[in-house]
Amino acid sequence: MKRILPYPFFAAILLLAWLLLNESVSPGAVVFGAIVAVVISWIMVSLEVPRTILRRPLAAIRLAFAVLVEIVRSNNAVARIILSSNKRDRRSGFVRIPLDTRNPYSLAALACIITATPGTLWVEYDSVDNTMLLHVLDLIDEEEWVKIIKERYESRLMEIFS
């Protein structure tokens, strides 16, 4: 089984993308999409992607919803910053945040979440010290951001990825 279909989840997503592109679920499209999905997942084997287990799918869905809410909220905040006149003294800057997780999937997910949220940007990761550099558009308190990143996202990601 593992030899025929090394990454079943990845292959299923590829098949789904193929069907969406073709806009049909006719047998021909399904068969051809399945062949493409299986062949591409064989190619993935030679890339040696590290394996992971999604331990708590429900927690992942809750996190995705929380991120969506946060994106809408900070879209509003950043739009206000751009449109407001420069009366208020806004300060942007870098914050160095120490991390606890070293799991590559948690780190990748954390980087994508932080960068996709307007107003915060993941700039750099230091694998020796396990710290990251965050750039914040509206920086009020450095300690506050360390707490937000660690409590809101990192602890939940550590629960999700084992």
């Binding site: 950043v78 449109l83 942007s92």
Partner: peptide, 22 residues
Amino acid sequence: FGLLRLKNFYDRIHAPTLGTTL
């Protein structure tokens, strides 16, 4: 517009995220 208005590169890189997310 934020891409035009904000003052330095690290501020500006936040602006296009509005268009690419919501």
